[in-house]
Design a protein around this nucleic acid. Structure first.
Length: 842
RNA sequence: GCGGACGUGGCGGAACCGGUAGACGCUGGAGACUUAAAAUCUUCUGCCCCAUGGGCGUGCGGGUUCAAGUCCCGCCGUCCGCACCA
């Protein structure tokens, strides 16, 4: 055979064969060891982008490699298909979100198939299918029955123009991202999932996730934000209505005698009482509410307080009154929305005290001798020995803290407790394109679950998007139903579930999909937990925390016996590209510019172009490269190869023309090599060096794939190809070529099949076994010894393996270059590291 | 501010447990094949110098060691996450 490898024909041929022979359909009843490989499923935006290609290629390599190792592999794909872009498209183009979404899914499925991923398409699912969201409604009701779902009034970001709730991420500088209208804080009845009930479990569970990046575990730990300390109360000197005390939380009970003021949040009930009675307080509260919560605004606002007419009594000394301030830096939704200020040992309190001339008292010192030393220009935050603190004096901070907690509990003015930063998960969205919340509101019976036999609660098709606000709420008849309990006229919940609910259990449904229930426990547990989950680090908290919670909630209600859904997690880097700007500051796409010497010019106008930073491919920067034409030009394997080759997978990969060209060259090189097999093979002496290289490569490529170090695997394969090319024709060389085909198969599967077929091996590479390496062949009987003089390399010599100290020393001293360095002197000391080096010290 | 990661040629990056720094790829130079080009092959490619040799080199400054990209101390820089969290 001659000529070039034709990826277009080969890609098609093998993709069809794999599909016809159902190569990647996972058998839940198989006896083989089971491996579940999963990449985060995509939102069907309409087109696959390079980030998807990189993500799914990594997962595909693992899946194919495990399959070759004899595992039964589950590697599914589906669509995170609910969400706002579909509704936006509906509003802009007057098409139904469902038809827009399904068309996108169709297009993206074709694109994924074109890349030849080893996916089990028989298990494909889309979260917008009633067959999926109906089961989700059942699970929601199971959690509801277990008391893990509740309804509460809470503050939301309300866009008064679009008449909808916005997520925090959709509020930019206090304005709605689409409408540009100033976002209002509004109180709405919302459904919540009790994730806080699992806060401790979710925190402790992180310990066991040793195949997760430390970074992600740390982010989740911080997000959960566990603090232990003391909850206690300051009685008011004079009660305000029925408020007669202020409850605070502190992590430093040991500093209780350092208190100089009480600060309450602008939203605190006492602040509202003050505002009602005092115009000054009212104005201050309004001012705080108007101020934004962005970092910059907080920075510039500084610490401001308003001195109320109230004062509080210290719980350990009722003759010690403390002023009560309303302060802009106190968060109403953290702790109790009130705190006591200890300026000596908290920087924020110190700043506040300085501004309002409050006492700055030392209650912690390096030793008892420091009791009289004033606090300097900064608060002293660290632990030490309690001073100026009555019965606590002389104790360490830790001792003092537990002593205060003990006394508070005995005397009844406080109790030791733990608080979390984590909030319950608000899942209500005033949106159409989501899972309808299966609840019916009845005036007499309250919130009543939809009976199971009436699930799924389907989304109505006949909805209009010509005006903002929730189409479900506007629909003339959908929400009107009878109460399942009393039969009286009632109405459906018109909120839908947050899309993160959809992605909190899809990996379970992939593993098991009976039609009559969400999943079969036994079947699901044969696959779960996911052995290797791969996705972007942007989901480090939300999705990955919600999925962990959902899994534990299912365990809690006895539906699944699993603590953690994802045993291994890998967060891959982004695909980046240089950015370009025209003279007027507008962004230009890579296709619109051309390099002219060292400069860039706009092709059309010839104007100079300013190249900018290398950034994540994004529409707004116009630095995207569409995978489709690249696939058409170079074929799937070259694209896959490049996605894996240049950068370590956890780091960003810069797209480059040179990179894809290099990958394409490699594909052709392998094809030429395979075509050179056989012929006039010289029999006789096998190529020992090549054999060793081959076995070393089998070992290291396997290790590299196991460790998701694809770039290293690829470098080693390049080396092997070069070694084979240089080797004279021999049976050993032919074996090396055959083995090479197996080694590249996970990365370049179409090429591998084509080569396998050409070599007449029979069967397909997908069904072939991963080669074994012979440990004996990893060892060479010759080694290269480095010869150093005073730690500097002067020579290298070839020596037999295992040479002893004296012989190695003699060999080193025999070196002409060493003798020149010695210049007649004799070495003071000689250090020999067996089979590595000899260092002669003068 | 707090927490984390990182810093190696022209570029992306290798380097096990402290033991030959720069594997592999890209770019570039020279050559072969060709009427020519593409493709391919061979070969070189960290910097510097008084070049069969030598000096300097892993952000900067110190230290430990026979030996430091790797360990320790102190800086500088870049990126990411969280952010008035009581």
């Amino acid at each position: 055979m001659d000529g070039r490898f034709d990826p277009k024909a080969a890609d098609r041929r093998w993709q069809e064969r794999w599909e016809d022979e159902r190569c990647f359909e996972a058998d839940s009843t198989s006896d083989k060891p089971k491996t579940y490989v999963l990449e985060m499923f995509p939102y069907p935006s309409g087109r696959i982008h390079m980030g998807h290609v990189r993500n799914y290629t990594m997962g595909d390599v693992i899946a194919r490699y495990r399959k070759m190792q004899g595992h039964e592999v589950l590697h599914p794909m589906g669509w995170d298909a609910f969400g706002m872009p579909a509704e936006n498209a509906a509003m802009e183009r007057n098409i139904h979100p469902g038809s827009w979404t399904r068309a996108n899914i169709g297009a993206m499925r074709d694109q994924l198939k074109r890349i030849g991923f080893a996916l089990d398409w028989s298990r494909e699912l889309a979260t917008c299918d009633p067959d999926y969201y109906g089961h989700e409604q059942a699970l929601f009701l199971d959690l509801f029955d277990a008391g893990l779902v509740y309804r509460k009034e809470s503050e939301v970001n309300w866009d008064p123009v679009d008449m909808t709730v916005l997520a925090n991420e959709q509020v930019i500088d206090g304005k709605g991202w689409r409408s540009g209208a100033s976002v209002e804080r509004r109180k709405l009845n919302q459904w919540f999932l009790k994730i806080t009930q699992f806060a401790d479990e979710l925190l402790d569970g992180l310990q066991a996730l040793d195949r997760w990046p430390d970074k992600v575990r740390l982010m989740q730990e911080n997000w959960i934000g566990k603090s232990t300390g003391l909850h206690f109360r300051f009685p008011l000197v004079e009660a305000s209505g029925d408020i007669n005390e202020i409850e605070v939380f502190t992590t430093r009970p040991d500093t209780i005698f350092g208190a100089s003021f009480i600060a309450i949040a602008p939203g605190h009930p006492l602040a509202l009482a003050a505002a009602a009675a005092d115009p000054g307080a009212s104005a201050f509260v309004d001012q705080c509410k108007a101020g934004g919560t962005s970092a910059a605004e907080i920075e510039t606002a500084g610490k401001k307080g308003y001195l109320t007419t109230y004062s509080a009594k210290h719980p350990l000394d009722h003759d010690w009154p403390l002023p009560v301030y309303i302060a802009n830096f106190v968060l109403s939704d953290y702790g109790t929305g009130a705190l006591f200020g200890v300026p000596g040992h908290d920087q924020r309190d110190y700043d506040f005290a300085n501004q309002y001339q409050l006492a700055i008292k030392r209650v912690v010192g390096a030793s008892t001798g420091e009791a009289g030393k004033p606090i300097g220009t900064e608060a002293e935050i660290g632990p030490g020995i309690a001073v100026n603190s009555q019965f606590l004096d002389g104790m360490t901070s830790a001792e003092a803290a537990s002593d205060v907690i003990r006394r508070a509990e005995i005397a009844g003015w406080g109790q030791g407790s733990t608080i979390y930063r984590l909030r319950d998960w608000g899942v209500s969205r005033q949106r159409y394109w989501g899972t309808p919340i299966p609840i019916i509101h009845c005036d007499t019976c309250g919130a009543v679950p939809v009976p199971r036999d009436q699930l799924p609660v389907l989304l109505p098709e006949d909805v209009s998007f010509d005006t903002p606000s929730n189409p479900l709420d506007r629909h003339p008849s959908w929400k009107n139903v009878d109460c399942p309990k009393c039969g009286a006229a009632a109405r459906r919940e018109t909120d839908t579930l947050d899309t993160f609910v959809n992605s909190s259990w899809y990996f379970i449904r992939f593993a098991s999909q009976p039609s009559d229930r969400p999943f079969d426990r036994v079947e699901a547990e044969t696959w779960l937990p996911v052995a290797q989950y791969i996705g972007g680090v942007e989901h480090a908290i939300l999705h990955l925390l919600y999925a962990r919670f959902w899994t534990r909630a299912l365990k809690h209600i006895g539906q699944l016996g699993l603590d953690e859904p994802f045993a291994g997690l890998f967060t891959q880097g982004m695909v980046t590209h240089e950015t370009y700007r025209a003279g007027d500051g507008s962004w230009l796409s890579p296709g619109e510019v051309r390099k002219d010497g060292d400069d860039w010019v706009h092709i059309e106008s010839g104007h100079p172009v300013v190249p900018g930073r290398i950034e994540k491919m994004s529409k707004s920067r116009r630095n995207t490269i569409d995978p489709e034409p690249i696939l058409a030009k170079y074929g799937a394997d070259a694209v896959r190869w490049f996605m894996l080759s240049d950068s370590p997978p956890e780091r960003d990969l810069e797209w480059s023309e040179g990179g894809i060209e290099g990958a394409s060259r490699f594909v052709q090189r392998v094809w030429r090599l395979v075509n050179s097999v056989g012929g006039d093979a010289v029999s006789g002496d096998g190529n020992e060096a090549l054999d060793r290289k081959l076995h070393r490569t089998i070992a290291t490529v396997g290790e590299a794939i196991d460790g998701l170090q694809f770039n290293k695997a690829i470098a080693q394969l390049y080396e092997l190809v070069t070694a084979i090319e240089k080797a004279p024709a021999s049976p050993a060389r032919d074996i090396a070529v055959r083995t090479l085909v197996l080694l590249i198969a996970p990365m370049a599967p179409h090429l591998a099949e084509e080569c396998w077929d050409f070599l007449g091996e029979g069967g397909m590479v997908v069904d072939a076994a991963w080669p074994d390496h012979d440990p004996a062949k990893l060892i060479d009987d010759q080694v290269t010894l480095a010869i150093q003089v005073n730690g500097k390399l002067r020579d290298t010599v070839t020596a037999p393996l295992g040479l002893d100290q004296a012989a190695a020393e003699a060999l080193a001293l025999a070196s002409e270059k060493v003798q020149r360095q010695l210049a007649g002197a004799s070495p003071r000391k000689v250090i020999v590291v067996r089979d590595r080096l000899v260092n002669i010290v003068l």
